[in-house]
Design a protein around this nucleic acid. Structure first.
Lengths: 172, 172
DNA sequence: CACATTTTGATTGTGCACAACTGAATTGTG
DNA sequence: CACAATTCAGTTGTGCACAATCAAAATGTG
């Protein structure tokens, strides 16, 4: 239909041979990455509609189904989400009757999250979700492995580059 | 440090050999996809800080630098963004003095976006952005090509699967 | 014990994605 | 011409990501 990528805006100064290459490497990768990420979210929106969950909420439920009662801190570590995301998300899950939050007796700062019976029961309804989503990707193990390897390497390199002062190898 | 992926929550019913495979294929791909996407956004946040742009705003500017004055509709097609996202984004760009919006004389429904002199001038400051980001990925052409091919294929398959009624090939 | 530091979660504010709706203008049809 | 359908932006509301800030509790140090 139309060109999906925004780039190829070079041809001005002729400032060297690396410009369009750079645009290919950064804009198009980031763009197709965002597109795939949003397509995944859209598919999850369809698949999780009957459960009344969004994808991040589903991730939280996955952790709770596996690990049981857990502090908010642990959820943030498992899912790489901070409290600014988790707090309202957990409130919505509590309002939906799936979880309950409770301050720890041992450490009054810590809030423990546990499933309600409704939350436990939802696991049965969610059993087919992974298979449906995996089937929708059309990927076999080899594809999935290649993709995950590339993404992991990419994320590591980007994380490394994003912090200018925190421990660049020669700064001491 | 800890396990980055939320999955591996099987081992309950023993309902067949495909369960952990499915979790590997869906949760972990989607998860690492989101992680990479957010890492990219975080890097762009650092790189674009001096320009006062976010990544989606930078994409809009790329299109304008390349295509010149263009209707909002065209921006949405190039970037796959709808008006609910573009309208406030363009307002912020206009408030920043980089663009101006103007109703078309020919078709009063259409709004044309054009760059201000400040918006044109910003292009010079943005020239090094693609190279900086591309360098941060650590990817060569082969890696980038492999990744983009996989992502494009994945997005296509997900888009296809996300619509239940719109022309699935065998449904009659 | 008194006091600074760290940890933990919540809160606030900004920006983006998306669905649903509104409203104006064009186009198609009788 | 009248009227329905379509197109195009905009608005509203919900949810997520993230930065900055705050408060309370635990911990460390003199």
């Amino acid at each position: 239909m139309d060109t999906p990528h925004p780039g190829r805006a070079d041809r001005e100064g002729g400032a060297g041979p690396g410009l369009d290459e750079a645009l290919l490497l950064d804009s198009q990768i980031c763009f197709s990455l965002n597109a795939a990420s949003r397509a995944f979210t859209a598919l999850y929106r369809v698949v999780l509609k009957d459960l009344g969950l969004t994808y991040p909420q589903y991730l939280v439920m996955l952790v709770l189904w596996e690990d049981g009662t857990t502090p908010v801190k642990h959820l943030g570590e498992r899912l790489r989400l901070d409290s600014g995301t988790l707090s309202p998300l957990l409130k919505r899950l509590e309002a939906a009757g799936l979880i309950r939050r409770q301050r720890s007796a041992a450490d009054e700062r810590s809030v423990h999250v546990h499933l309600t019976p409704e939350g436990v029961a939802l696991r049965e309804q969610a059993r087919l979700v992974p298979r449906r989503v995996a089937a929708a990707t059309g990927f076999d193990h080899h594809d999935a492995r290649t993709l995950r390897t590339l993404l992991t390497r990419l994320t590591g390199a980007l994380d490394e580059a994003a912090r200018p002062e925190t421990a660049p190898p020669g700064t001491r």
